[in-house]
Every structure is written in structure tokens, then in C-alpha cells.
């Protein structure tokens, strides 16, 4: 049952990704991209990573799609009635080669839920799982690591988001900062 669900979802995700690459109409490609993000978000939920799934669904499927839509409002649709883009063979061969190389590493990934996998048996993982609640009073270990143990990294992330926002304001010349 679980296997079937993974199969259906992953097939959907791969086809959505191919649709993004090959659809000629940008609007269709953006919608396919939203579908791709949504499929990936559900895969994350199945893999028990709800924090990442929430981010993927909200940012990947939601906000990014809206920003892309805004960006293409001013562009023009390419002419012609073709549904799909012509395949550019050079980049296609390079991409296929890269995928092939990456696929060779799949064999060395640990199986899902393997108790002997390096991450699960690592001393650091055990330390966080044992100490996160007593030390921080926070039940979600992910939050404890992000905001307490790795608080400085998270500050950096927030600064990156802030800088990106400011950069867009400057580029669009909404404000004069200099």
C-alpha cells in the first residue's frame, strides 16, 4: 500500500518535472511546477518530515507560483500551436548524463527507517534527542535545534531573507537607500 502510494506520487512528481521542462506555454509550465512542489510536499509528509513539507507547500507551491505568475504577466506567449518545446539535444544529453551519475549514488543511500543508518546511529543525533527537551523545554526537536542549538545559523538565514527583500526594493527602485 505504502509502496503503491510512493510509486504513484514519485511518478507524478517526475512527470510534472518533465512537463515543466518541456511545456512551451510558460503559464502551463508554472502550473505544472506548482503541481511538482505539491507532490514533493506530500512525499516529505510520507517520509515524516512535516516541517520541510510545510515549507515546500507554502513557499514552493504557493508563494513561488504567485511570484512567477506576477513576473510573466508582462511577457508575451511564444507563437505557434505546438504544445511542447523542441528538445535541445546538447543540454538534454548533459542533463541525462548528470542524472545517470547521480543515480549511481542511490544504491549507497540507507533504506528508509534503517536503525543502523549513519544519521540514526550517530552520537550527535542521540545527544539532541536525549537533551533537547530537558535543555530547552521545547517538544519539537527541529525547532529546538534551529532556534537554540543552531540559533546563530538561523539568524544568518533570517538576514538572507531580509537582504533579498531589500535587494528587490533597491532593484525596483521603490526606495532610495543610497
Amino acid at each position: 500500500m505504502q509502496l503503491l502510494l510512493y510509486g504513484v506520487l514519485l511518478t507524478f512528481v517526475v512527470f510534472a518535472a518533465l512537463a515543466v521542462a518541456f511545456l512551451r506555454d510558460i503559464l502551463s509550465a508554472i502550473i505544472a511546477f506548482a503541481g511538482f512542489s505539491f507532490g514533493v510536499a506530500i512525499v516529505y509528509i510520507l517520509l515524516r518530515a512535516p516541517d520541510v513539507a510545510l515549507t515546500e507547500a507554502a513557499v514552493g507551491a504557493g508563494v513561488t507560483t504567485v511570484l512567477f505568475l506576477l513576473a510573466i504577466v508582462r511577457t508575451v506567449r511564444p507563437g505557434g500551436d505546438r504544445l511542447f518545446e523542441r528538445v535541445a539535444w546538447g543540454p538534454a544529453i548533459i542533463a541525462t548524463g548528470l542524472v545517470g551519475v547521480l543515480l549511481t549514488t542511490v544504491r549507497s543511500l540507507p533504506t528508509i527507517g534503517d536503525p543502523n543508518s549513519p544519521v540514526a546511529s550517530s552520537e550527535i543525533t542521540r545527544y539532541y534527542l536525549e537533551n533537547a527537551y530537558p535543555q530547552t523545554d521545547v517538544e519539537n526537536v527541529v525547532t529546538a535545534i534551529l532556534a537554540a542549538y543552531r540559533g546563530f545559523d538561523t539568524l544568518g538565514e533570517a538576514a538572507v531573507v531580509l537582504a533579498a527583500g531589500l535587494a528587490v526594493l533597491v532593484v525596483l527602485r521603490k526606495e532610495v537607500y543610497v
Binding site: L54, N140, T143, L146
Partner: peptide, 9 residues
Amino acid sequence: AESAGGGFQ
């Protein structure tokens, strides 16, 4: 802090 989520999400 108690369930999935946080500031970013």
C-alpha cells in the same frame, strides 16, 4: 515549539 512548523512556515 510543540508541533511541526515555526517562523519560516
